[in-house]
């Protein structure tokens, strides 16, 4: 990877960091509000896997923030560059499609991790958290962030207008993340919805991530790793192919 890649990566990180109150502060506050409301309503009534509800909820919120912000970073950066036209600054230099992909996705992962760490910092006073198997935490955060970062690249390239991007976000990303066991264990669902949840890759990201905290989860972390790893590999190949063909970027 050359200096072109590292510059693009740096620029993508700098871009969100310059408006950190929107890109980091706001999502941390949102997650904190979710925690306050749900834990107020449900704590004391619900226990999951023997863990008190607030403690169960925190890793879910952290991971949801990682995923949503990873998606937001690459998708919003690309659509803004396309709409304003400054995407040419990235298309004119000798940057390969692989460098392009990695720079956008890694910057998305960084944004996801920064927001995730912020949510963790803001919420972990509310309940005792363990970090039983921390490497799972890291692995799923990185891979989940990369998957949503890739989806963000796809959405950002595909969308011509902001409302198309919003549709992608509202009708795909939001349902997938909300219906993935962030707020509940899928074992508490009726059998039909349990089955449906097992088709949602985001479920495995959150379940595996949560496993790192408590050492227990709905699915085996190895199964989750296999599902999440396959998704990442598939999306990477798909996105690289789009970029190689110059889909919507190089007419």
């Amino acid at each position: 990877m050359g200096h072109g890649f590292s510059t693009l990566f740096y620029k993508e990180v700098l871009r969100f960091w310059k408006v950190a109150s929107q890109t980091v502060g706001a999502p941390v506050l949102t997650a904190l509000l979710y925690l306050l409301i749900f834990s107020h309503v449900l704590a004391g009534h619900v226990q999951v896997h023997g863990v008190i509800y607030t403690a169960f909820l925190i890793p879910g919120l952290v991971m949801m923030s990682v995923l949503q912000n990873a998606f937001a970073n690459s998708s919003s950066s690309l659509i803004q560059s396309k709409v304003t036209g400054n995407i040419v600054f990235v298309l004119l230099p000798p940057i390969s499609y692989l460098e392009f992909y990695l720079a956008y996705v890694l910057a998305s992962v960084v944004r996801g991790l920064v927001v995730g760490a912020g949510v963790l910092l803001a919420t972990f006073w509310f309940a005792p958290l363990d970090f039983v198997e921390p490497w799972w935490i890291l692995v799923f955060a990185l891979m989940g962030g990369a998957i949503l970062g890739s989806l963000g690249v796809i959405a950002g390239i595909w969308a011509d207008k902001f409302d198309q991007l919003a549709a992608f976000q509202n009708f795909l990303i939001m349902p997938l993340t909300f219906l993935s066991g962030v707020f509940y264990s899928v074992h508490s669902l009726p059998p039909f919805w349990q089955q449906v949840s097992h088709w949602n890759p985001v479920f495995y990201m959150i379940d595996g991530f949560r496993h790192g905290f408590f050492g227990v989860s709905d699915a085996s972390p190895w199964l989750s790793l296999a599902v999440v790893g396959s998704c990442l590999a598939l999306l990477t190949v798909f996105t690289l192919n789009l970029l190689k063909r110059g889909y919507k970027l190089r007419a």
């Binding site: 050359g2 200096h3 072109g4 590292s6 510059t7 693009l8 740096y10 620029k11 700098l14 600054f89 990235v90 230099p93 000798p94 940057i95």
Partner: peptide, 11 residues
């Protein structure tokens, strides 16, 4: 910043 970033893109 714009010019430094653009330089970086060209290595």
């Amino acid at each position: 910043e714009s010019l430094k970033i653009q330089s970086g893109y060209f290595g």
